[in-house]
Design a protein around this nucleic acid. Structure first.
Lengths: 237, 237
DNA sequence: CGCGAAGTTGATTACTATCAATCTGAGTGG
DNA sequence: CCACTCAGATTGATAGTAATCAACTTCGCG
């Protein structure tokens, strides 16, 4: 059921491919990496469980590995001058972590699992070596990094200039879209992160996020019960 | 005076290399690309002047080119739902533009020159072709993209959770550092962008930026006269 | 000299942060 | 099975900050 080579040329496809017998994600959501194939190609490409609350990597660690999330949910964060954790993004099954480390030889961010997760560890040198045998793998990496750049730019748009309520709504629609792309129910889901973590990402305070949830609920735009969200995905542009 | 090959393995070097006879930047600030060499290697890698106010590329344009800024200054922006231009970053000589287009086949942002500039147009396919001959060129590209990711993450930290005055100060220190890395005087410089553009980047209103300038000046942290800034770079951590 | 774009300043309103109290639900142990 | 506990979440009151609207200033330019 998987492609015989660890890459795929299609750029337009946005649908996810996952194993039918389990929820485990084996391909990047644009089908650019197939971990089943990668695992079979190199000895040092391995799966590793990542328990809730543990780090995939920390800021300052020497960079040598990319982490492909097969199962679960992670947050990416920077530590600011005040020692405060500032969340710069969330990643889910099918995403790749650690792309920021390549430039300076060490990670500038840290990644923590918000759920018990499974990552596929891909030593960067192995990936480079494989990309000689499979040239399109190189281009897949470019696309993955490029998508990260484009995605971060959109996040910056979200952070600037929107009032709290709209920030939160846009954030939820964004999440729903991520789920939809992966073939997961997008109109009802459980938030993997706390109010505080949402606040940290949106540049707000926890209380403001909570109030925004309450208000959006009252306005009928969403349905909230603690971390369970129901949302009308048809509106999500 | 330039490297004989269009790439360089050093990762630790942070100093810039520019032509001694002119202000033109020929190498990426981490010495990863040398445009003089690139220009000599492929016919379709060309220099192009970019007049103030003109686009390097627009959102939605088909992606096929990276733009290496040799001279000048550009802003990168997204257009939000309200048709408002939201600035997601500024780029200067030695930076590479257009990295966000690789993923989806079209640019998701737009880039506009804030000064009369000169860019080196690098067709992406040419770059890929060259990276077969010069394998390290591939890794240079990875580093450039990775740096963009790390840099955007830091920008997100700037946008979230800091009050206006501190945002502006951090922005100015960041700019000063960019200048310093390139060997340009960093303790006194002219801002290439308007108050409104700074506001667009920092997620503030123009008036707030203006007030923040006034206040920082009054506090003696900076010296402002319209667009001319003097700043104590020793404090810039 | 007048014009217009860019920038500054002032007054007021709207929004968000902050501090504090309370509520809820999951997990724990008696 | 139920009270207890505690972290996460909600709500309220108030203070602080930035947005908004408006007037004014400065500078470059024809």
């Amino acid at each position: 059921m998987h492609f015989p080579i660890p890459f795929n040329h299609s750029t337009s496809t946005q649908s996810a491919v996952s194993c039918t017998t389990c929820a485990r994600q084996t391909q990047c959501f644009a089908q650019e990496l197939d971990t089943d194939v990668l695992l079979s190609l190199a000895e040092n490409i391995r799966q590793r469980p990542l328990a809730r609350g543990t780090f995939a990597y920390r800021s300052g660690d020497a960079f040598n590995t990319l982490y492909f999330i097969q199962e679960g949910f992670c947050k990416k964060a920077l530590i600011d001058d005040a020692g405060q954790e500032c969340i710069v993004g969330f990643s889910m099954a099918g995403d790749v972590l650690g792309l920021d480390g390549c430039a300076e030889g060490c990670y500038t961010s840290q990644a923590v699992a918000l759920q018990d997760s499974v990552v596929c560890e891909i030593p960067f040198t192995s990936l480079l070596a494989l990309s000689f045998t499979f040239p399109s793998l190189q281009q897949s990496l470019h696309r993955i990094m490029s998508r990260e750049i484009a995605h971060n730019q959109k996040s910056m748009l979200l952070l600037g200039s929107l009032p709290a309520e709209e920030k939160l709504l846009a954030f939820l629609y964004g999440l729903a879209q991520q789920f939809a792309v992966r073939g997961i129910a997008a109109d009802a889901f459980d938030l993997p992160m706390s109010r505080e973590e949402i606040a940290g990402f949106l540049g707000l305070q926890m209380e403001t996020v909570s109030r925004a949830f309450t208000k959006l609920h009252a306005e009928g735009l969403i349905n909230v019960q603690r971390r369970h969200i129901r949302i009308d995905t048809a509106r999500a542009a």
